[in-house]
C-alpha cells in the first residue's frame, strides 16, 4: 500500500452503521478491568464499525476512560479481548497505534515549548511506520513539517507562532491535543472528552472538523458525558453504567418513538373537554398528549368540537431520557 492510497481523503467513504465483523475498527469481548476489589469495567462487548461516529456515553466514573486506556494499550485488561483495526491489543499495539489518533483525559504538552516544537518532538519520538514494513510511513521525517502545519491548520492553531504552550488557554491546549491526534492521518480517532474547555464556537468548529474527517473515512470513537454533544455528532451510541454496557445501538433507535402522539391545538382547555380525561393530557408547553386514542379519531373529534388542530406528530424520546432510563 502506498502512502497515497492510505490518505483518508482518498479512500471511498464507507457506509455507516454496523456491518460484518470484518470492517469493525474496535471490537472487545468480555473486556474486564479490576483494580483490587473494584471492578472498573465489567464484561464489555463493544463494536465500532469502520465509518462509525461512535458515542461512548456514561456518567463520570462509569469506566469510560479506563476502557479508552485499554483500547490504546495503556492499561492492561484483567480479562477479555480487544481488537483494534483488526489486530489484538496490547500484543500488536505497535502495529496498530500508528494508525490511531488519540486524545485521552485532556491534552499533554511540554509547557516551555511552542505548539510546533511540541508536535515535532512527539512526531520524532515514534516510528515512521507500524511494525509491518509495507505499512504507510505516515510518521515520516520527510513529511513532518507539512503534516504539522496541516494539523495545526485543521484545528485552527496556525497563528500561535512561537508562544510557549504555558501561555495557552485551555481551549488552545485542547486544540493542540487534537492536532497531535491528527498528525498521522489516522484511520481511527479515539477521543476522550475532546471539546473540554472549548467555547461554543470552538465546539462547533471541532464538530465540523470531525464530521469532515469522518466523511473521508475516519472512524471516530468519542467518549463523553455530554449527551448533547453525542446527540449532535454520533451515529451509534454505547451507554456505559457502572462499568457495564447497558445499551449499544444506533442513535435513532435510542431516540425511538414512544408510541404517544403530541398534538398542538388552538385551545387546549376546549380540547381536553372535547376528548375527556384521562385519554388526553397536556405537556408543559401546551401540547396535547394522546396515549392510546387513535390519532384520526381524535383529530376528527376535535374538529367536530370546534377545536383547530395545528400539528400532530409522534412523540420521540430524547437521548437524555433514554440514557437516564438506562442508568438510573
Amino acid at each position: 500500500m502506498t502512502a497515497r492510497e492510505h490518505d483518508p481523503a482518498r479512500r471511498p467513504a464507507p457506509t455507516t452503521g454496523g456491518g460484518a465483523d470484518g470492517d469493525a475498527v474496535v471490537v472487545t469481548r468480555g473486556l474486564t478491568k479490576r483494580y483490587g476489589r473494584v471492578t472498573a469495567v465489567d464484561d464489555l462487548d463493544l463494536r465500532v464499525a469502520a465509518g462509525d461516529r461512535y458515542g461512548f456515553l456514561g456518567p463520570n466514573g462509569s469506566g469510560k476512560t479506563t476502557t479508552v486506556r485499554m483500547l490504546l494499550g495503556l492499561v492492561h485488561a484483567t480479562s477479555g479481548e480487544i481488537e483494534v483495526l483488526g489486530r489484538r491489543v496490547p500484543r500488536h499495539a505497535k502495529d496498530v497505534l500508528p494508525e490511531v489518533g488519540a486524545l485521552v483525559e485532556g491534552p499533554g504538552a511540554y509547557p516551555h515549548l511552542s505548539a510546533r516544537a511540541n508536535l515535532r518532538l512527539l512526531d520524532a519520538a515514534g516510528p515512521a511506520r507500524g511494525g509491518d514494513p509495507l505499512a504507510p510511513d505516515t510518521g515520516s521525517r520527510r513529511t513532518r513539517r507539512s503534516r504539522i502545519e496541516a494539523a495545526l491548520e485543521q484545528v485552527g492553531l496556525t497563528d500561535v507562532g512561537r508562544r510557549p504552550v504555558r501561555a495557552y488557554s485551555l481551549g488552545m491546549r485542547q486544540r493542540l491535543g487534537l492536532a497531535a491526534a491528527l498528525l498521522r492521518g489516522p484511520r481511527l480517532l479515539v477521543l476522550d472528552e475532546p471539546t473540554n474547555g472549548l467555547d461554543p464556537r470552538g465546539i462547533a468548529e471541532i464538530r465540523d472538523l470531525l464530521l469532515d474527517l469522518n466523511r473521508r473515512g475516519t472512524a471516530v470513537f468519542l467518549s463523553s458525558h455530554l449527551l448533547a454533544e453525542v446527540e449532535l455528532f454520533c451515529t451509534r451510541v454505547g451507554v456505559l453504567h457502572r462499568g457495564r454496557l447497558v445499551a449499544q445501538d444506533d442513535l435513532d433507535a435510542l431516540r425511538g418513538p414512544t408510541g404517544r402522539t403530541l398534538v398542538r391545538v388552538d385551545d387546549v382547555d376546549a380540547a381536553t373537554r372535547v376528548l375527556g380525561l384521562p385519554a388526553a393530557r397536556t405537556t408543559d408547553d401546551g401540547l396535547l398528549v394522546l396515549d392510546d386514542l387513535p390519532v384520526p379519531e381524535a383529530t376528527a373529534a376535535l374538529v367536530r368540537g370546534g377545536v383547530a388542530v395545528l400539528e400532530a406528530a409522534p412523540e420521540r424520546r430524547t437521548l437524555e431520557q433514554s440514557v437516564l432510563g438506562l442508568t438510573s
Binding site: L72, V104, A125, G126
Partner: peptide, 14 residues
C-alpha cells in the same frame, strides 16, 4: 505529570 507520557506511549513509543 505533564500528561505527555500517555501520548508518547500511544505515538507509539515502546
Amino acid at each position: 505529570q505533564s500528561g505527555t507520557l500517555r501520548y508518547l506511549l500511544v505515538r507509539p513509543v515502546g
